[in-house]
Amino acid sequence: MMQWLPEDVSPYGGSIDALFYFIYYITAAAFILVTALMIIFLYQYRRDDSRRAVYTHGNTGLELVWTIVPALVFIGLGLASKSIWEEVKLNVPETDVEIRVTGKQFNWEVLYPGPDGEFETADDYQVDNDMHVPVGKPVRVFLGSKDVIHSLFMPNLRFKQDMLPGRLIEAWFQANKAGIYEAPCAELCGFGHSGMKGTLYVDTPEDYAAWYDKRWPPAETNGSDASAAETTEEVLASGAVMDAETMPDAEAEPAATEEEAVSAEDVPADSAAQ
């Protein structure tokens, strides 16, 4: 069972997985108990015309036991779940890394606020499906949708959140291990739902700095030229945004090609990053 959960690289995933295994042991014990009793009873009390079945209508003591014991177990599980849920959902850590991910049929539109830290300013950078985040830092993510309900699912981060058109939902995640992770859509969103996925690049500090500096060159961050140079139009022109038609081909490629594709379109000098 242990290896069936995908590798966890998030700060709270350990608690979720531990809770999962806790429930696993409880339910396994209950299953074995009930199944064993059932098999024993079926064998022990199989038809035998030389005896009569026990004539009883029940037992109040037993009823109380099997009402109260499960109730206590369930309340315990509820309380354990409550504290982890709050850790995940309600205690959002402070951070300066923010991105906005907007679902649209059938891509993730990723928006980076740029050096000014503000969305919807001239130095924003928008790209489809590629999320670059630094390793070991909390990331605040604003989730929205342009058309239907999507759900951003990052299995290795134990992260899943629906994205609703008409709302911006704030969430957070943190990846503690550098690498490339798949980020599929988990909510049926139309004929292209299957295969709708993005890629989460969790960069080492050096790689992240290199990616960041390539996107927003340090010397020019204060100049209006640099901001202008990184408008959406230019990024579109550079081919960084893949449209729905080219997506399936790109997805069918193995990981190595994905890396190449990214380095080619994004950070040519950075191919050693992975």
């Binding site: 959960l5 709270y12 608690s15 979720i16 809770l19 999962f20 429930i23 599980l77 509820g78 354990a80 779940s81 409550k82 982890i84 849920w85 995940v88 299995p155 134990r158 992260f159 899943k160």
Partner: peptide, 9 residues
């Protein structure tokens, strides 16, 4: 699935 944190996954 009743357990909220596990349900996330």
């Amino acid at each position: 699935m009743a357990s909220t944190p596990v349900d996330i996954f």
